[in-house]
């Protein structure tokens, strides 16, 4: 439920995929039929030499080509942008489930309250293995995810009814309706380690 920009994810995958595919196909073609690519190779070497010609003198006496410096700068810039990309994934979590600004102050409800009220009552049920909540900002609205992992053999409609009861209690406590998503989740490998209480 986070607000990761998924278009950007796919754009990065698309660009890297195309680059790898084209480069890989070229390598295969050159490896299989070197003769066909001989003229191209000569032209490429020539172009590279011409591109590397303009150079600036270094203090120590050597000359550095401007193209090499530009390439270096581009590589560092691209690496920096990619670092920013990696660290902007998975955003959108919030610490509070409600924020109300009134004349004489602001009321903030922490997400731990949602954890206790919503998840707490469900986790006590014998047919529920675990229940947890998360709070997210979805288009400026604070939304709550209530993820419930049920026991093997549990009646799903009964669990759903219990979740709806918990949400009703939550609405009454909060005094307003906030978007809530109930997620009946698969058991993970960690749930196999939990004690198996039989459904009563």
């Amino acid at each position: 439920m986070n607000s990761t920009n998924r278009v950007l994810n796919r754009a990065l995958l698309l660009v890297s995929g195309v680059v790898l595919l084209v480069a890989g196909a070229t390598c295969v073609a050159v490896g299989l039929q070197p003769m066909w690519f001989q003229p191209w190779q000569e032209r490429a070497v020539e172009a590279a030499l011409r591109l590397g010609e303009p150079s600036i003198e270094m203090g120590s006496g050597g000359a550095v080509s401007i193209a090499a410096l530009a390439g270096l700068g581009a590589a560092v810039l691209a690496a920096l942008l990619l670092v920013v990309f990696v660290f902007t994934r998975g955003r959108g979590k919030t610490k509070s489930v409600l924020k109300v600004d009134a004349e004489r102050g602001r009321t903030v409800v922490d997400r731990n309250v949602a954890e206790t009220v919503l998840a707490g009552s469900l986790a006590e049920r014998p047919d529920v293995l675990s229940a947890r909540t998360g709070a997210y900002l979805v288009r400026g609205t604070r939304a709550v995810e209530l993820a419930v992992t049920v026991q093997r053999g549990a009646s799903l409609d009964r669990v759903l009814a219990a979740a709806e009861d918990a949400v009703r209690a939550w609405d009454a406590l909060l005094g307003e309706r906030a978007p809530i998503m109930v997620h009946l989740a698969d058991r993970s490998w960690r749930d196999a380690l939990r004690p198996r209480t039989r459904v009563r």
Partner: peptide, 20 residues
Amino acid sequence: LVIAGAVAAVIGLVLLALAV
């Protein structure tokens, strides 16, 4: 060159599939 190119092309295809 052929082996490296083939590996790169396969990875590229997988990434393209994931993107599309």
